[in-house]
Amino acid sequence: MRVSLEDIARAAGVSVKTVSGALHGGSARMAADTRERIQALATELGYVTNLPARGIRQGWLPLIGVVADGVITSPFATHIIRGLDGEASKQQMSVFVTTVSAARDAAATIAEVERFRPRAIAYATMYHKFVDLPEAADRAVGLLINCRSRDAARAALVPAERDAAFTITDYLLRHGRRRPAFLNLPGLLAGELREAGFRQALRAHDLPVVEERIGAAVSGGFYSDKAESLVQARIGAWLAGADAPDAILCGNDRIALEAYNALRRLGARIPDDVAIASFDNQVDIASRLDPPLTTMALPHREMGQLAADILLGLTETPEGVLEVPFRLVERRSV
């Protein structure tokens, strides 16, 4: 015989509503031990959710839909999806992801996701940027992840870029570096905010902001791996000057990799002559450099976990943009 919610409620000595909340994520306020006890009992009795019936009754299925603007293809932004899925599974929810494409724009993709009657929909991007969703699509999305609306009014989770740059620059300065330079990411919101944090840290230490020691890592107005690199030329010019930097903050770990190579060609030692620090913590790069790279780890997994709690009503939805802090990963490049 099929086991019902009533059977589990009777065996557990609780209400059917409590059982439904424990098994289907419908209760935002429940003790963890109660939820775990009910879930264990449901497994023991062989309970299987009737998803079509539940969808008709509740108006939604135990699904979180993620509309991804490039996020699946990013080597480390996939941690957003992993974090979200891991947290959602604790509430007996599943995550499905579909992507925006040239053939299907954001509005059409979100409308397609709505047909599956998910509990909630999130919109995630590959890198931190502004997004402008059409009105109907905007209403359907419960949370923006790794992106924000231009008026900052929409609920969104983004990396705390400015604070991360302040933290890593402050770290360099507290380790005795007094002439830091910055190889930035042109055309990206992350680059703009990271530069602001770099400047803020210098002012906080009563150090001058030397404009000649702040420069784009690539030519053109937008950072990409395909753009022409300026790293070798900039570092060569800096080290040839009378006021050479004793530290270089890089816009990301890929730029740091280039900076290592440039310094080695010029005979400079890391960190003895020039310290290097960066952003992202792309482990395949940062941990394998010699010496290993000190960097700020992007909070993508934490953003995914927090997104799941927000979308399922377990955590209060932010009013506007919520910045999630990076984590400093100390290695031996400073």
Score class of each variant (00 low, 15 high):
Leu266Val: 12
Met30Ser: 08
Ala244Pro: 09
Gly220Val: 10
Ala107Gly: 07
Gly251Arg: 00
Ala240Ile: 12
Ala268Ile: 03
Thr78Gly: 11
Arg29Gly: 08
Ser94Asp: 08
Gln232Leu: 14
Ser149Val: 13
Pro52Ile: 07
Ile248Lys: 00
Arg139Met: 05
Arg199Asp: 03
Ala88Gln: 03
Tyr127Gln: 11
Leu306Cys: 06
Gln91Met: 13
Arg139Glu: 05
Tyr123Ser: 03
Val321Ile: 15
Asp280Gln: 06
Ala102Cys: 10
Leu188Trp: 10
Ala9His: 04
Glu112Gly: 09
Arg139Asp: 05
Asp85Tyr: 10
Thr98Phe: 05
Pro118Asn: 08
Leu173Cys: 10
Lys90Gly: 07
Thr167Leu: 11
Ser229Pro: 04
Pro134Glu: 05
Gln232Asn: 12
Gln91Tyr: 15
Gly70Trp: 08
Arg269Leu: 13
Ala68Met: 09
Ile110Ala: 03
Glu87Val: 01
Tyr127Trp: 15
Phe96Arg: 10
Asp280Trp: 01
Ala277Gln: 02
Gly83Met: 03
Ser4Tyr: 12
Gly59Cys: 12
Ile276Val: 15
Leu312Tyr: 08
Thr167Pro: 04
Tyr171Gln: 02
Asn184Thr: 15
Gln282Met: 14
Asp309His: 09
Ala190Asn: 04
Pro245Asn: 09
Ser224Ala: 14
Asp105Ile: 10
His175Arg: 15
Ile168Leu: 07
Pro325Ser: 09
Arg288Lys: 14
Asp206Gln: 14
Arg148Gly: 06
Val209His: 09
Trp238Gln: 07
Pro291Asp: 09
Ala307Arg: 06
Pro118Ser: 12
Pro62Leu: 14
Asp290Ile: 08
